[in-house]
Write a protein that binds this DNA or RNA. Structure first.
Length: 110
DNA sequence: AATGTGACGGACC
DNA sequence: TGGTCCGCCACAT
């Protein structure tokens, strides 16, 4: 960390935030980007979750899109993510969608 | 240095 | 309601 001793880069903040998502709750890309201080940095969040090295030790399965659905295509992680979430108590409707009003993690309103 | 890529999101039509 | 386009960011080539 030559840039700053406290590693407060966008990526670091995003990863830190994701680590704080409690089991049974989920967060959206847009929400994470916003909490990390970059409302328009959604694509950066996508990159982090897409990079296997970056998502190491992160509860990546608790990150979904703003529509309340898993973004991973079936046969490429979708099943695993859904299984992990259901194991934590997150429920899916007939359209594999999660009710954000009930499961979206809202910091400060824990 | 420029271009391509990626598990998005919001505006538009 | 749903498909398409554009904008954002970070990293690899």
């Amino acid at each position: 960390m030559s840039q700053n001793t406290f590693s407060s880069t966008f990526a670091e903040r995003v990863k830190q935030f994701i680590k704080t998502i409690p089991a049974g709750k989920v967060a959206t890309y847009g929400q994470i980007a916003m909490m990390a201080g970059n409302p328009g940095g959604v694509r950066g969040v996508v990159w982090i979750l897409h990079s296997s090295s970056q998502k190491a030790n992160l509860p990546w399965h608790r990150v979904i899109n703003g529509k309340g659905k898993i973004s991973l295509p079936q046969g490429h992680g979708f099943e695993e993510q859904k299984t992990r979430l259901e194991a934590e108590g997150v429920q899916f409707d007939e359209e594999d969608r999660i009710d954000l009003d009930r499961f979206l993690w809202q910091p400060g309103n824990q």
